[in-house]
Design a protein around this nucleic acid. Sequence first.
DNA 1: TCTGGGGTCCTAGGACCC
DNA 2: TCTGGGGTCCTAGGACCC
Length: 358
Amino acid sequence: MASWVLHVDMDQFIAAVEVLRRPELAGVPVIVGGRGDPTERAVVSTASYEARAFGIGSGMPLKVAARKAPEDAVFLPVDHAAYESASAEVMSALRALPGVVLEIIGWDECFLGVETDDPDAVARAAQVAVLDATGLHCSVGIGDNKVRAKIATGFGKPRGVFRLTEENWFAVMGDRSTRDLWGVGPKVQKRLAAHGIATVRELADADRELLTAEFGPRMGVWYHGLGSGVGPATVDDAPWVARSHSRETTFAHNLTTSEQVEAALSELAGHAFDDCAADGRPVVRVHVKVRYAPFETRTFGRTLSRPTTDRGEVIETALALGATLDRQREVRLLGVRAEMSVPEGGAATERTPVRGRI
DNA sequence: TCTGGGGTCCTAGGACCC
DNA sequence: TCTGGGGTCCTAGGACCC
């Protein structure tokens, strides 16, 4: 029997959860984001397929989405609790599949590791299990490692299954843009293009020395392998260990006084600390992030002289960092991040350097 | 046209130590 | 006058993902 990695990804997860509890929304363009008010500063979390047909997608400002949306479109507020509970049902249905190792990588997606000679059957079984348990549909990518499984899922959407392995990698991906690779965003795409590397095949054929000179020893090697679809294949079911917690807020009206900034920092730092405290681990470092109007972001950090469980100390540190902000400029967004100490024997498994939760 | 909030990991460069 | 090399820690910033 061979080892396979399956990537399970829910179809339009957030919009689907909303439709599930409000069946009258079936077939309607549904746009979930912010507080559901398209006149506010917020972006689209998920748009239903009906809404996507109008060019509305994740990350788009709600104001822009409102302009594109038809009259019968429905804007809904984000309801984290509802998605978390739906997510838990999905994961528990998948975990119950025989012989699988489950690694959760987000609200609406996970990897399954399985030993089988018929991965398609496992993929179909996963889809049935999720649908039976929750009424929600998903797509499944099958791969010989995490990178190929993850990319395969996109070809299976919606409600489908797609297999991507060493055998068909170049046939499927070779002529596509490097941007289609997981972990290559607009900046990296541009830097690669400056070296004449536009396609996946060109990345695979590129000189490794050139890539390490451009991106550093780790990322250079990672990108080079990515061109050939190389990646880790170990699925790890160890519980997730958060490295940090943050709270941030975008203000409907920009802040202009020190008093406003201090009040906001105290509150955010307190919440961030509380999230760390709930994990039972001390804070080792505090960051403050500020977005000046119109859109320039700065971050400041300070490492504490020793790990602390003192809420007041974390707040004081955030305020001290906040004191260095430019008082002449309006503040559009503030955030506080608290990094925690790493627990004994913390996650030591192979990780992909794809940023985000993986 | 207007750009959220929650995360993780990598890199460059300076400080500092031996 | 010329001033190593390696290692670690820290800061700041960058990039990406969901």
